[in-house]
């Protein structure tokens, strides 16, 4: 697990450094993940330790969003003004986008 954490944190750090250095418009961890994918594909395999650590983290990905979800209470005033139209817009638009993604995916995949 420790070696896997070194890889994950190290690539995140590398991503953050490169993003800051070049002023790139993407978050450091996304760049770090992209770099890790390239490295692993070049190596041709994912080590057992890295694989099991990643899957433990990703199975509990929901936990990591709890603080941000709680943070919504900080901005409740902002929501009161446009609450219902915003909710309907977000729900409707999200469902439309998911339907579009899945239908096009299936249609082009045929």
């Amino acid at each position: 697990m420790i070696n896997a954490l070194v890889v994950l944190l190290g690539l995140q750090l590398m991503g953050e450094v490169v993003v800051n250095l070049f002023g790139l418009p993407i978050p450091g961890p996304v760049l770090g993940g992209g770099a890790l994918a390239v490295i692993l594909l070049a190596r041709g395999r994912v080590g057992a330790e890295l694989s099991s650590t990643a899957h433990v983290i990703l199975r509990n990905l929901s936990l990591l969003f709890v603080p941000a979800a709680v943070g919504v209470i900080e901005y409740r005033d902002m929501f009161v003004a446009y609450g219902l139209p915003l909710f309907v817009t977000v729900l409707g638009s999200t469902m439309l986008a998911m339907a579009a993604a899945a239908l096009v995916f299936r249609w082009v995949g045929r």
């Binding site: 954490l5 994950l8 944190l9 690539l11 995140q12 991503g15 978050p27 450091g28 961890p29 996304v30 770090g32 993940g33 992209g34 890790l36 994918a37 692993l40 994912v46 890295l50 694989s51 650590t53 990643a54 899957h55 983290i57 990703l58 990905l61 990591l64 969003f65």
Partner: peptide, 10 residues
């Protein structure tokens, strides 16, 4: 969330 995003590569 940072390391988890990197872990999506796996």
């Amino acid at each position: 969330l940072g390391p988890a995003t990197v872990a999506l590569a796996i």
